[in-house]
Write a protein that binds this DNA or RNA. Structure first.
Length: 242
DNA sequence: CTGTCTGTTCCGAT
DNA sequence: TATCGGAACAGACA
């Protein structure tokens, strides 16, 4: 289950293992030697966009839930175990995901100024990055993980509806103030989504994604395939900048 | 850059 | 009732 708000919640739950050592590491994960984890204590838990980062003294375990990933904490479920970590107190299991080890220091591997939900997220940097892709449709720009780590298909559709911008508007046609408004709306919306996640709800609160009619003017929502994903919008309420 | 592939679960149609 | 196909919060690669 991806998108940054979900992963942030996962990180929050994973922090209970900080300070504990891994007693055993099981599962079909094969991109690294699982035995390296055994005996190592968790030193910190972080996120970068849709990636969960479990830090150990000499390396970091990176977990990406992709589209179908799931996890259980202190219990388990049926299905193929991708990576299961047993700690002194409790266990953490991942299914259908991608795991790797990052050997270099995190500060070298990641620029946390581009992590939308990070306290170091730099909106001005995001704006200048965005303007380097003038011909890109705003809906494509928002999901580019190199620009905005953590935004997914639901978030981009919801945010563009909330700010009244047509998804196919080109970046260079949108003025700086409006671009900044979009960036700020992303941050706000993602934290709102995080709260919904914590409360166990989410999709009920989405107003345009997969909806039949626009909540504002009751016009039919347009669902359009763009590349491999479907985008949702109201072409009356969302202004096309071109 | 377009298309293809993988992975899991759910839901609706047959 | 059981089964099948498509879709879905993603990203990698040819």
């Amino acid at each position: 289950m991806p998108e940054a708000p979900t992963v942030l919640l996962l990180a929050e739950q994973t922090k209970q293992f900080i300070g504990q050592k891994v007693l055993s590491a099981e599962g079909k994960a094969s991109k690294f030697d699982k035995s390296r984890l055994v005996g190592q204590p968790v030193t910190a838990v972080k996120t970068f966009g849709k990636e969960l980062l479990i830090c150990f003294p000499d390396f970091t375990l990176r977990v990406h839930l992709m589209l179908f990933g799931s996890y259980t904490i202190n219990n388990h479920k049926n299905g193929i175990l991708h990576l299961g970590l047993e700690f002194q107190k409790g266990e953490l299991n991942f299914y259908a995901c991608d795991t790797r080890l990052i050997e270099e220091p995190l500060e070298e591997a990641y620029d946390f100024r581009r992590e939308v939900m990070n306290e170091r997220f730099d909106k001005k940097l995001a704006l200048s990055d965005l303007k380097k892709k003038p011909k890109l449709a705003i809906v494509d720009a928002l999901i580019d993980q190199n620009l905005f780590a953590g935004i997914g298909n639901k978030i981009r559709n919801e945010v563009l509806f909330l700010v009244g911008v047509h998804p196919l508007s080109k970046v260079n046609a949108i003025d700086d103030d409006k671009l900044m408004e979009i960036i700020e709306a992303c941050v706000t919306f993602m934290f709102r989504m995080f709260e919904w996640k914590k409360a166990g709800v989410q999709d009920e609160n989405l107003v345009i994604y997969k909806r039949e009619e626009c909540p504002r003017d009751k016009m039919p929502v347009i669902a359009e395939k763009l590349g491999s994903r479907v985008i949702y919008y109201c072409d009356k309420c969302q202004e096309l900048y071109e």
